[in-house]
Simulated scan of single mutants.
Amino acid sequence: MNNILEIYLEEKVYRNKKQQINLLQNFSLVVEQGEKVAVVGESGSGKSTLLNILGLIDTSYSGTYTLFGKSTQKLSDRELAKLRNKNIGFALQESALINSLSIEDNIKLPLIYSKNRTLKEHQRFNDIIEAIGLSYILKKKPLECSGGERARAVFARAIIMKPQVILADEPTASLDDKNKSKIIDLLFGAAHDFGASVITVTHDNIFAHQHDRVIQLERKEY
């Protein structure tokens, strides 16, 4: 298998008036194509920070990061944005839906921004909506939907373009058992069907151990 990403973090530093917080010190991770990796740890251990770094959202850290064979430190902001939009699917808690758009338009945003829209991609939209059970809220606005419905919409948007990397932050946290099963099937199906590498932050121990590997982050006391 091919390595999709290799990262070594000396540390990620947050500073405020009272203290300096150092996260992810001497952290390293290599992920192969199609591999499913779960990241677990206490609140404050750096799980979401790691996803933001892997997703090229946060670039202010000490270390090295190679993604798809490219050193991300050598890329311009425009190149980072292009790489992020084309190849990474985000199902992050802060990936807010746009409240002025319908659920359907929110999910279709990656298709709208893509220059290579095809009938096949729109068929994929229909397939995902059917599999995830969202057809009944497509015309609703996000604020008219429950937390679980919004979480499923964010996840649908994350996988619609068949990204090479899927970053998921607690994708099943607000779901009942039936909808949790749908999300897990789609998430792991992406790894199997088109070789996506999946990195999931979760507090669900059972869900974590359904991945190929589990990475434990430790919280540093200050």
Rank of each mutant, 00 (worst) to 15 (best):
R15S: 12
L92D: 10
T49H: 10
D169M: 05
Y8L: 09
F194R: 06
L9Q: 04
T49I: 11
H211Y: 00
V214I: 10
N99K: 09
L187A: 15
E11G: 03
D193F: 04
G44V: 07
I184N: 02
K18D: 14
R124T: 13
A131K: 15
A158L: 05
S60Y: 12
D193L: 08
D177R: 14
I98M: 13
Q19L: 13
I21T: 15
Q19C: 12
D127T: 12
L75T: 08
L175N: 01
G148D: 01
S100Q: 13
E218I: 12
K178N: 12
D105A: 12
P110Q: 05
Y136C: 02
A190P: 05
E144W: 07
I53N: 03
K17N: 09
D77S: 11
K180E: 08
T49F: 08
N85D: 10
E42N: 13
V154C: 12
P171N: 00
I132M: 11
S62A: 13
S100D: 14
K17F: 07
E170H: 05
E144Q: 15
F90L: 11
N85S: 12
I215V: 15
V201R: 05
D77L: 11
L101I: 00
S43V: 05
I21E: 05
N205L: 15
L75A: 08
N179T: 00
D58Y: 04
E144F: 07
H122A: 08
R219N: 14
I21G: 01
K120G: 00
G55V: 10
L138Q: 06
G89Q: 01
I206E: 11
V30D: 04
F194H: 13
S146T: 15
S76I: 07
